[in-house]
Design a protein around this nucleic acid. Structure first.
Lengths: 128, 128
DNA sequence: CTACGTTATACACGATTAAATATAACGCAG
DNA sequence: CTGCGTTATATTTAATCGTGTATAACGTAG
């Protein structure tokens, strides 16, 4: 007797796992998403791209590319950097960047709230 | 002296480029997103995974993996398949699958509508 | 029985992506 | 001047992803 064809890995569905993700695409790249917002927070907290990358467990190169993508997508710089100096340099989220993150997070919150009921119903249709 | 600022028709920022994408993640995989919804539509229209893949310009393997991911993520099958027979077999979106797509599309629409104003404001902050 | 088109799977190959490593420029501390 | 940590970039290496190809099982038509 053959077993079920599709085995399902036991997995509890955490509420956060079912949160809708808001991503703002621009041409082929993603201008803003949850990962980039977190990176900007980490740059705020640490004062440098490299420290933010370490904090988030990603490579410096990857963090730098994410910053570069953001700076390319928006009208103005989201992150400003300095080289040299006492700490070797650093990075800083601009006022414009803070505004971008604030707007993004507000849109995410609002969009998620608008479908909160539907999402929780949807969640009941997924493997628990 | 810059030349005439021509309207960049080729890369004009279409509204869809800035539309938020709703993706419903589950564990590490994406249970439902715009691509998977389109695939289910194509399976509806063609009656098979392979024809749907051809219609969407993707490999059969990729389409099959997307279907498999969906079937794994949800409580019940989203797509049912048959092998053999007059047409060699085929695939069919289940009633459950239709319900999933309907719910997903409704959530997408509602979420996008809820932040439509904020999105258009946000768009003005991006490179034109 | 044979042919056909599809599902389901496996494998090889290339493309894309990410990480790891290396290096130069920078500017201040010492 | 030298050392340090950072930015920015290039190069190499590894991992992931996607396609293409191949094959077996399947069930109906002919």
């Amino acid at each position: 007797m053959p077993g079920p064809r599709h085995r399902r890995t036991a997995q509890r569905a955490r509420a956060s796992a079912l949160q809708p993700q808001l991503r703002i695409s621009f041409k082929k790249s993603i201008a803003m998403g949850p990962g980039k917002a977190d990176l900007l927070d980490a740059i705020d907290a640490t004062g440098s791209i490299s420290a933010a990358a370490r904090k988030l467990g990603m490579s410096y190169r990857r963090a730098w590319l994410l910053v570069d993508t953001m700076n390319e997508c928006f009208k103005a710089a989201v992150v400003e950097t300095l080289t040299g100096g006492a700490q070797g340099g650093g990075a800083r989220v601009t006022d414009f960047g803070h505004d971008i993150v604030r707007r993004y997070r507000e849109m995410s919150r609002k969009a998620a709230a608008s479908v909160a009921r539907e999402m929780s119903e949807f969640a009941t249709l997924m493997v628990r």
